[in-house]
Design a binder for these strands. Structure first.
Lengths: 114, 114
DNA sequence: GCTATATTTCTATATTTATGGAAATATAGA
DNA sequence: TCTATATTTCCATAAATATAGAAATATAGC
């Protein structure tokens, strides 16, 4: 991850409609949702949604796959992961004085097991 | 955290100069850096830097404090934390199929102890 | 109060971005 | 091939954002 691609990714979700779309996809899981069902769920006109999905795809934050006449969009979790790691990289220069404490599902899972 | 404030925060770092400034502050720790030293370190004209710092402050991503003639800017780790939590909230609808795995310094610390 | 230093505000220009209707382009079943 | 459905592209307009020089505003030491 470098500055430019992080900016592209951040810009892709620095917009109300797109952030809503992205979070919907994050919650939808790897199967994702079709463009039409996103449009319906979030009340976004098709052409506008298409524009936003293109922005998200272009940034690499969402993946898409065709299935019959439908195109399914899904969150790219690896990209999200890389972005968050980039933002917090070398946080506090290695000191632990107030740093981020993110616990997402994989970590919750790991801790539940141990 | 809601959609609007997340967008404000994301927009504040969805710009090359500001992302660089923010990451510099994240790495600088709670003491932060003076406006002048940021300008010098990143080769950004004062007026431009001032504009960007205002954006970051307004979004709540950085704090500032006056110390003699200097103004020190520092990362707001709580705000960063909230943002990352918002982005990954209810990730994969509770399933663990490819989710984010962020481990920042507090977690590293906790794991090093245990 | 004067001077030097630190930072911000003002200003104008250039650039990028968001919106949604209408038309165009796929895809697949009959 | 015809038709219905799904999605994207085209387009024009409106709005927001980035840039940096010059001027203005703090702050502190003498």
């Amino acid at each position: 991850m470098d500055n430019k691609s992080a900016v592209t990714i951040l810009a892709s979700i620095a917009q109300e409609a797109r952030l809503e779309i992205f979070r919907t996809l994050v919650q939808a899981g790897i199967t994702g949702l079709s463009a039409g069902s996103i449009a319906e769920k979030l009340c976004i006109p098709n052409s506008t949604l298409s524009f936003h999905l293109k922005e998200l795809s272009h940034a690499g934050l969402v993946n898409s796959r065709q299935e019959s006449r439908f195109i399914y969009y899904s969150a790219n979790y690896e990209a999200m992961n890389s972005l968050l790691a980039y933002l917090t990289k070398n946080c506090c220069a290695g000191q632990q004085d107030g740093c981020v404490d993110i616990t997402t599902c994989e970590i919750q899972e790991r801790e539940a097991i141990s």
